[in-house]
Design a protein around this nucleic acid. Sequence first.
DNA 1: CGGTGCCTTGATTTTCATCAACACCTGTGG
DNA 2: CCACAGGTGTTGATGAAAATCAAGGCACCG
Lengths: 229, 229
Amino acid sequence: MGKLDESLLREVPPFRRLDRPQVREILDQATPRRFEEGAPAFREGDPADRFYLLLDGFIRVMRTTPGGEQVTSLHIPSGQLFGIAAALGRDTYPATAMCAGECLTLFWPMRLWHPFVAKYDGFAEEGYKTVGTRVNEMNTRIMELATQQVEQRVAGALLRLVKQTGRKVEGGIEIAFPITRQDISEMTGTTLHTVSRLLSKWEKDGIVSGRRKHVTVTDPHRLVVISGT
Amino acid sequence: MGKLDESLLREVPPFRRLDRPQVREILDQATPRRFEEGAPAFREGDPADRFYLLLDGFIRVMRTTPGGEQVTSLHIPSGQLFGIAAALGRDTYPATAMCAGECLTLFWPMRLWHPFVAKYDGFAEEGYKTVGTRVNEMNTRIMELATQQVEQRVAGALLRLVKQTGRKVEGGIEIAFPITRQDISEMTGTTLHTVSRLLSKWEKDGIVSGRRKHVTVTDPHRLVVISGT
DNA sequence: CGGTGCCTTGATTTTCATCAACACCTGTGG
DNA sequence: CCACAGGTGTTGATGAAAATCAAGGCACCG
């Protein structure tokens, strides 16, 4: 396997402040790994012995209830670290990292975390900032689930996905990875039936459009109004 | 004001590994502060310029929706740090820290955080471990809100409170601070009416009992069954 | 070109919020 | 000491939201 190219890491927040030799060092210790759509990078309960950087794709953070239902608590866009639970004193991963679409990652053994924190300027700060952002997102999700109606939550979830991952296509902004009604229902704590009804209605109203496994938002503003934020 | 006693910190996780002179140093930089029941230690959006240690009492972490509804995302028991959001790269507090019952705290200016991390063994580790625990709790709350019925959620919330804060009284375990039906509804994303009905029913069934602002769980096991965990 | 996911839509039922009214406790101030 | 006010708690009646039940259609893959 050839050496990894340094440009991979130069633009990524946790490593942005480093110079070329440092990036080289880090890359030489990394293992690249590719995942298929729907494959888990790791599962809830696995020993947390690695931390990952997502180079491309999207990760869906999921947990399974005792009854077997899936719940998605957030999505991670490329350029971010994930699987860093061990830095927060855990020894197993608290959730499953499912790949929504194809994913390219690098990983390092967890024992390198502390050396990285000590050695590389800005690494700790960016890592913990990532945690801060996620805590905030989770908090927001709790508020939404506790107070909003299903329609508002679904609208909010679509807007969040579009903002985090949207790419312009003709006639709107498309969510950049394959997503089913079931997936959306797992993000919003509802059923695929209800999501389907909502999307059908919104499609009739010209707010969204979609093919199988794909959703395009054509009128984000009206979605904002519905989401009530 | 007299000097604070060192025994205050010797048993508290973030400082447990330190020797007396170190604890002395830390205490000399701390400011003690007492809060009344229902007073906020800080509010959502305030500049995050201090971090706190809760010596006694309970903190309720709350957020307010745009529509003015209150949501409680978790409770913090004594002995833990709180208001440490700035360590995760935030410059304002992401939530309000409301005192459930009387609270005794110490606080330090946030600029001491990094020195503490660098200087005191185990401080960083304990601080981040606390974050890890909270992240996990929040994740669990998301799962519950997304999948469980109101009855299960209320049962689960009572059990959590009892586990975290319960004290034995004759005939059961009482939640250690004043708590209203409204408070419980804000923890579970429901209304005080529904909570009242559930508690009435459970009281008839001999599972809980309660006076005004107080709840005692008399049969935790049946509550576990109801909560479905 | 069959089969397996994915999606849609109607009918029915359940859960829980909402509306409404009132009872009760506790502290306050005349 | 008593009245009363305001926060707290209870309970019934009603209705809306969304889950569940049910059935079938449609797209994409091998």
